[in-house]
Design a binder for these strands. Structure first.
Length: 874
RNA sequence: GCCCCCGUGGCGGAAUUGGUAGACGCGCUCGACUCAAAAUCGAGUUCCGCAAGGAGUGCCGGUUCGACUCCGGCCGGGGGCACCA
């Protein structure tokens, strides 16, 4: 038997055999229980990186483990193949996005295959293939028919140089990430999916996802952002008479006389301005704290609120203020330090619970048009922003919530009080708790008709239009006569044209000479195709369904898909916690609502793995160096932080040469060892070498056993201690794989390996080696097959049974009992498992050390935990 | 600002319901084999101490016979969200 395991030769041989035999094809129609294991499919950006290797290795171990435990396993792979990078490449390298993408897919597929993943390649799909996106277009039309798709004008980030819409993530400090041009807000007609229809379901559904990380559920909960509260109307006070507000005060800086128009001589001779006639007589505000309504001291509206717009007509000061608000930076840091600014419009509004009480109306920079109603009432005593604002503009601050009756008149200082308490200074609400107060005010508002209880969501409908070429064409035709018309099903897929040009910025579909020109499917008149494509998140919102079932003539077969779904274990990066996972959940529920698929949640179990990190190096001028460069660099080198592998920091490690050098198994082993899978894993040369040594160690053990052959069965009889270790390892490795605690499963395997190495030859030892090979096979499958064959076992270890742990062998016969005095360890003793309390106490007190420490005195108390410890309280 | 997670040897990290802290790996030290090296094997490796012994899971306090684990208050690191009314 070869002294060393040679992965260069063995890996390919086994990979070929698995492929030829279809070892990892999902059957889907036999009697075995089914398991669907899925990792987030990759974007074909060029080459596989270590993050992929880690992600797919984890899924692979689980998939192989499930197969060995008698499951029919679906473990597919595909390509999230649409996206902007391909267009960027087209512009930079003058290659067609499709060509670039497909060639990347070929490269990456070959790289993945070299890692020996137990994937069902017969189900491979790429979202850029018309045989995929054509079905997506059909589903889009299904949702459209069901009223879950609509079109509306919406503001987008427009890059005037690249002539394209940018995602929020592509706007950096107000500029396009590529062109550097100042981004404009433009109104465009966009297609939207009604995800808000499902807001409550998506929120409630989180409660059922008990196999999801709490962190992800929390992030989705915050993203959906449900706020219960009340909407109510403020009537504008009459604008006639000396209180005429129409010119506004124009003050944007603080003044103590709030709304003190009379002091401004200009206002006296102000012409009666037209504003009131074009002004609505009332507007709505939203609040989560209707109980604090008697603490109101002002109302404020967003700069782009219709009333603000109307008032700014002919009021230059206000128009200027509004313009100023729009210029503000949008970065987190800028917002945090941004000053609360307002503009007193001079208009007054009537308090809904007291017609004689009016409040000044401000336009304020911190009120957002796209949340709630774009208008608020300010209650400075109990909201920090309102308090800052009130202090600045000299508005009254009235406490209406007090933690105790004694503090009812306690003035508010620099901090708003948002804690619990009872209502004060609030007329009929006095004495109520906040909750009761909220209920009471809503009840009264609803009875009197000026407001109602309501729920406001942070979640917005999903805008799916992208002014891009490399995406799924939206299957709609715009007819001059009929408006937007769905492309008839028989004409799907709407295929992207291949002959396009990227020389000019903008969407090539728009400029294509013929593609968009069509006849209206309804009236036959002249029409134009929708040239926007779908957000690529749509592509990834249903690929897991297509994996489960892929008929040619429809997106999926319902009963076949339902047999596999939901995905039992989904594994991927935490960066997809919100968007991808929320969209996929929405899409699945939408399909359920329209009766296409009876699945509520797509992913039963979710696991988010950590990143692969590596040290960074910089030279004296701050330039990033690769580890190789750092070694040979002549000047001083600064060893930087351990960071996520990235091209810009030059600390990436390409998996392929590593596989060339050490083989797939060593790489896989390293990806699983050391760090818990949810945390970051630091790549290191020492680490991969350690893995390589283990692979060889395992091989030595197996090949020695194979060489020894039948003679070992004539050995020294059973080795009970080793048998125990084997069965404990069987139980532990299995439990740890199921818990996705791969690092612990690895530790179990190390331990078993050491135990076997130390054991003398015996039948026990031979079967221990066989068990070890089976237990390690999900992690190091090539080596395991090689060892399995060398030991003369039939078939593939990939198809072998996972060994069964004998419960009788899981417990030790002799246990070590800790003996403590006052909780401190002083001695240990050995006793048969299950020794009774009295005996253990006697044994402990008989110990010389313990007797010495007690100094002849009787213990005050003795605590005995059977099979664990005796604690003597002196 | 709000929310969440995490602080354990030189390093990555183990530790069922509170019950022998440091499993396992990396690194390091010593030894064996070797002309030598690599590979491999053996022993050791929390800290202080020759030892007996003592201290020890970010810090301070509490509950308990007993706390890495539970509670309160700090400090430090990471992540998410954000003028969300």
């Amino acid at each position: 038997m070869a002294a060393r395991f040679n992965p260069l030769e063995a890996d390919a041989r086994w990979q070929k055999l698995w492929e030829e035999q279809g070892t990892f094809h999902a059957s889907g129609d036999d009697s075995r229980p089914r398991a669907y294991v899925l990792e987030m499919f990759p974007y074909p950006s060029g080459r596989i990186h270590m993050g992929h290797v880690r992600n797919y290795t984890m899924g692979d171990v689980l998939a192989r483990y499930r197969r060995m435990n008698g499951f029919d396993v679906l473990h597919p792979m595909g390509w999230d193949a649409f996206g902007m990078q391909a267009e960027d490449a087209a512009m930079e390298k003058k290659v067609h996005p499709g060509e670039w993408t497909r060639s990347n897919i070929d490269t990456m597929r070959a790289q993945l295959k070299r890692l020996g993943f137990a994937l069902d390649w017969s189900r491979e799909l790429a979202t850029c293939d018309p045989s995929y996106y054509g079905h997506e277009q059909a589903l889009f039309l299904d949702l459209h028919e069901a009223g879950l798709v609509y079109r509306k004008q919406s503001e987008v980030n427009w890059d005037p140089v690249d002539m394209t819409v940018l995602a929020n993530e592509q706007v950096i400090d107000g500029r396009g990430w590529r062109s550097g041009a100042l981004v404009e807000r433009r109104k465009l007609s966009q297609w939207f999916l009604k995800i808000t229809d499902f807001a409550d379901d998506l929120l409630d559904g989180l409660g059922e996802l008990d196999q999801w990380p709490d962190k992800v559920r929390l992030m989705q909960e915050n993203w959906i952002g449900k706020s219960r509260g009340m909407r109510f109307r403020f009537e504008l006070a009459s604008t006639e008479g000396s209180e005429s507000p129409s010119t506004g005060s124009g003050r944007t800086e603080g003044g103590s006389e709030a709304g003190g128009m009379g002091s401004n001589p200009e206002s006296v001779r102000a012409e009666p301005v037209e504003a009131p006639s074009s002004l609505p007589s009332s507007f709505e505000v939203f609040t989560t704290r209707p109980d604090t309504i008697f603490g109101a001291s002002f109302a404020a509206i967003a700069p782009d609120h219709p009333i603000a717009q109307a008032l700014s007509d002919g009021n230059e000061a206000l128009a200027g203020f509004i313009a100023e608000c729009k210029q503000g930076g949008t970065t987190a840091a800028e917002l945090e330090t941004a000053e609360k600014k307002g503009f007193d419009t001079g208009v007054r509004v009537i308090h809904p619970l007291d017609p004689d009480w009016t409040l000044p109306l401000y336009v304020a920079n911190f009120v957002l048009m796209d949340y709630g109603t774009g208008a608020i009432f300010g209650c400075p005593a109990h909201d920090q922003r309102d308090l800052d604002f009130a202090r600045k503009y000299g508005l009254p601050v009235t406490r209406v919530v007090a933690p105790s009756p004694e503090e009812a008149e306690e003035p508010i200082g620099d901090e708003a009080y948002s804690g619990p308490g009872r209502l004060v200074n609030s007329r009929f609400l006095d004495g109520l708790t906040a909750e009761d107060g909220i209920r009471e005010v809503i009840a009264r508002a609803e009875a009197e008709g000026w407001g109602q209880g309501t729920t406001v969501w942070r979640l917005r409908d999903w805008g799916v239009s992208r002014q891009r070429y490399w995406g799924t064409p939206i299957p709609i035709v715009h007819c001059e006569a009929c408006g937007p018309v769905a492309v008839p099903r028989g004409q799907l897929p709407v295929v992207l044209p291949e002959d396009i040009d990227f020389e000019t910025p903008g969407n090539p579909l728009d400029r294509h000479p013929t593609w968009a020109k069509v006849d209206c499917p309804d009236c036959g008149g002249p029409a134009r195709r929708e040239t926007d494509t779908l957000d690529t998140f749509v592509d990834s919102s249903w690929y897991f369904i297509r994996f489960a079932s892929q008929p040619a003539d429809e997106p999926f077969d319902r009963s076949e898909a339902e047999r596999w779904l939901p995905v039992d274990q989904y594994i991927g990066g935490v960066e997809h916690s919100i968007l991808h996972l929320l969209y996929a959940r929405f899409w699945t529920r939408a399909l359920q609502r329209i009766g296409k698929l009876d699945v509520e949640e797509p992913f039963k179990g979710l696991f988010t793995q950590g990143m692969v990190t590596h040290v960074t190096f910089q030279d004296s001028e701050g330039r990033w160096l690769t580890p190789d460069e750092a070694e040979s660099h002549l000047g001083p080198v600064v060893r930087g932080r351990v960071e996520k592998m990235s091209k810009s920091k030059r600390n990436t490690v390409d998996p392929e040469p590593i596989v060339d050098q050490y083989g797939a198994d060593a790489v896989r082993w390293f990806m699983l060892s050391d760090s818990p899978p949810e945390r970051d894993l630091e790549w290191s040369e020492a680490g991969i070498q350690g893995s390589w040594r283990f692979v060889q160690r395992l091989w030595r053990l197996a090949s020695e056993e194979a060489d020894r052959g039948v003679s070992s069965w004539l050995g020294d009889g059973e080795d009970k201690a080793l048998d125990r270790k084997v069965h404990q390892a069987i139980a532990a490795v299995g439990a740890n794989i199921e818990a996705l605690a791969f690092n612990k499963a690895i530790a179990n395997l190390f331990e078993l390996t050491s135990a076997i190495e130390k054991a003398a030859p015996s039948p026990s030892r031979s079967s221990a080696v066989e068990a070890l090979v089976r237990l390690a096979s999900p992690m190091v499958p090539h080596l395991a097959e090689e060892a399995w064959a060398a030991m003369g076992r039939d078939g593939l270890v990939a198809e072998a049974q996972w060994p069964e742990a004998d419960p009788a062998l899981l417990v030790e016969e002799e246990v070590t009992i800790a003996v403590q005095v006052n909780g401190k360890l002083r001695d240990t003793l050995s006793a048969p498992k299950g020794t009774d309390r009295e005996t253990l106490e006697e044994m402990a007190l008989a110990s010389e050390k313990i007797a010495g420490l007690l100094g002849g005195k009787a213990p005050r108390k003795v605590i005995v935990v059977p099979d664990r410890l005796v604690n003597v309280v002196a």
